[in-house]
Amino acid sequence: MTVDSKQSKMGAGVGFERIRRITGYLVGTMDKWNDAKKAEERDRVKHSIAK
């Protein structure tokens, strides 16, 4: 995609990049991951730090 300098807006159609750790490696997108890994990532709950 290129940005036309005359255009007054930029970023249309550009998504956010979301880095996650899957099986020990960082990944920039979940697209390339198989269904079980995606499900595991989706199910994760945050851990509280209250003692």
């Binding site: 199910d43 509280s48 730090i49």
Partner: peptide
């Protein structure tokens, strides 16, 4: 009942627990 088995000896990712307890 899920699409995966839990990683090795881990507490399941879906189980609510504090960081220290885990």
């Amino acid at each position: 009942d899920r699409e995966y088995y839990t990683n090795s000896f881990h507490v399941p990712v879906w189980y609510p627990i504090s960081a220290y307890e885990k």
